[in-house]
């Protein structure tokens, strides 16, 4: 009788031990799955940070490569859309994931005025820089996990397009008041107001009571602040002022 009791006790103890190990294995299996999901998420989050950065980099690079993008938002939007598609498909191929990106909005161009310098994208630029704000929405998936992120970038070019345009407006107004519409007058006026710009080419035309000035201007101040090639600090200005008929 004692033997049977002893045997049963030992068997029960060992079966409890086995149960403990079994539950430990189950926990580890579950923990492993959680860990793997965590890793997938971390991977997708890293890829989304990478993709977001590459989109930001290329969006800014496009503006610097051709300053016309600064003054033509529809053209910039089209180019940016196709660039974003190319980048998303490249990332999808590279990491075997699904990647899609939508451009939610494009605001601008506007003049950088009182944005705090600590704001990413604005630091390094002074007042008067020309900026866009782009908001994008990224969705990445590897069939198991999804990552969705919305981000807004401030894309700035140091060229002072609006300040230069204002100076041209003033110059034309002055010229009209003085009754002097010569190119030399406007040139000296502009260079007097904004000391650090050079007018590379200018065409002045007067039709009826309107004066139109087309000019290509180099902004030397912007060249000092640009993060890329200084040759891109040239901007085209087109200003028309009309005098009211008396």
């Amino acid at each position: 009788m004692r033997g049977v009791a002893l045997t049963l006790a030992v068997l029960m103890m060992l079966s409890f031990l086995a149960l403990v190990y079994e539950s430990r294995i189950r926990t580890l299996c579950c923990a492993r799955k959680v860990h793997l999901l965590e890793l997938r998420l971390a991977r997708l989050y890293r890829i989304s940070t990478n993709l977001k950065g590459v989109i930001y980099y290329n969006a800014l690079r496009l503006i610097y490569s051709d300053p016309d993008y600064l003054l033509d938002p529809p053209k910039y939007m089209r180019t940016l859309r196709s660039a974003v598609d190319v980048l998303c498909s490249a990332f999808a191929r590279m990491y075997s994931i699904r990647a899609s990106c939508k451009i939610l909005s494009l605001k601008g161009p506007f003049e950088l005025n009182d944005v705090p310098s600590a704001y990413v994208g604005a630091s390094g630029y002074v007042k008067g820089a020309t900026c866009y704000q782009v908001c994008i929405n990224l969705t990445l998936s590897d069939k198991y996990v999804w990552v969705t992120r919305s981000e807004c970038f401030l894309l700035c070019h140091p060229i002072r397009y609006f300040a230069i345009k204002r100076a041209f407006n003033l110059a034309i107004e002055e010229a009209m008041e003085e009754g002097c519409c010569s190119e030399g007058y406007i040139r000296s006026y502009i260079e007097g107001i904004l000391g650090d710009v050079e007018i590379l080419a200018m065409n002045v035309s007067a039709v009826n009571n309107c004066l139109t000035v087309l000019a290509v201007v180099r902004d030397y101040k912007a060249e000092e602040l640009g993060i890329w090639s200084p040759s891109s600090c040239i901007v085209k200005i087109n200003v028309t002022r009309c005098r009211l008929k008396e």
């Binding site: 890293r46 950065g53 930001y56 980099y57 800014l60 690079r61 630091s123 993060i227 890329w228």
Partner: peptide, 14 residues
Amino acid sequence: RRLAEITFNPQNFA
């Protein structure tokens, strides 16, 4: 991810 954040700071673009 930290490296990506540093790399894609506009100050480092040039």
